[in-house]
Amino acid sequence: MQFPTTRTVTQSHHGDDHVTLDYDARFLRRKVLTSNGGIQFLVDLDQTASLNRGDAFQLDDGRLIEIVPASEALMEVTGDLTRMAWHIGNRHTPCQIEDGRLLIQHDHVLRDMLEQLGATLRDVVEPFTPEGGAYGHGRTHGHAH
């Protein structure tokens, strides 16, 4: 079966359709996806990309498929946010930073550590768009900056 293909990611808030992906699924290079409207298409990028709201796949037939972050199970962290952010970052954990709270993915070891540090934790379900890497856009891995 032949799918429409995309080799291009662009900025768009007015796509012909959209695809809802969680944080882990928004890190990809090559994969067949199905839009919320049922369009199957092949993502075939030159390199792995970290995608977020506002990005869109441009199909070879010209259609745009917007990327929408899916709601997922997260931990909301409140308390001494500067201190908590330091400890979360020290463990290279993706973290969404907002006024008055931090959001991280569920991890029982981090939960225990943050509770011991005095954080208040609450389970939430919402889209997750953590901060990108300090040395460029998107995610970074390791220390080879």
Rank of each mutant, 00 (worst) to 15 (best):
V9A: 10
P4R: 00
G79F: 04
E131Y: 09
L114N: 05
G100S: 03
L33V: 06
I104E: 10
H141F: 13
R29E: 14
A85S: 03
Q105L: 15
V124M: 11
H108F: 12
V9I: 15
R83L: 04
R101A: 09
Q40D: 13
Q47N: 06
H106V: 14
W86F: 11
A134P: 09
L42P: 10
H143N: 14
S12K: 08
R53C: 01
D16T: 14
H137W: 05
V109F: 08
I88Q: 01
G62K: 08
R91P: 03
G62Y: 01
G37P: 04
K31Y: 09
A25G: 03
L33D: 05
Q47P: 00
R29P: 06
I67D: 14
H141Y: 13
F57V: 02
P69I: 11
L21K: 02
H13V: 12
V19Q: 10
Q40C: 08
T5D: 08
D16M: 08
H106S: 05
L110V: 04
H137I: 07
T34I: 14
L114W: 08
F3T: 13
D24P: 01
D44S: 11
R26C: 05
I65N: 03
D22I: 00
Y23H: 14
M75G: 05
G132P: 09
L81I: 02
D123I: 04
D112L: 12
R83M: 06
N90L: 08
F41V: 07
T6Y: 04
H141A: 09
E72C: 12
L121A: 11
Q40Y: 00
E98C: 11
A144R: 13
G118I: 11
V125S: 13
H145E: 15
I39S: 09
A49T: 01
Q58A: 07
V19E: 09
H106W: 03
L74F: 01
A73R: 15
D22L: 02
S71G: 12
H18P: 01
E72K: 05
G38V: 06
F57H: 00
R53P: 00
R101V: 00
H13M: 10
K31M: 05
R101P: 06
Q40M: 09
T82R: 04
A85F: 00
T129P: 12
G15D: 08
L121S: 07
A144K: 13
H87G: 00
T8M: 12
H143G: 09
G79H: 04
Q40E: 14
D46P: 13
R139F: 09
T82M: 02
G136N: 10
P130C: 09
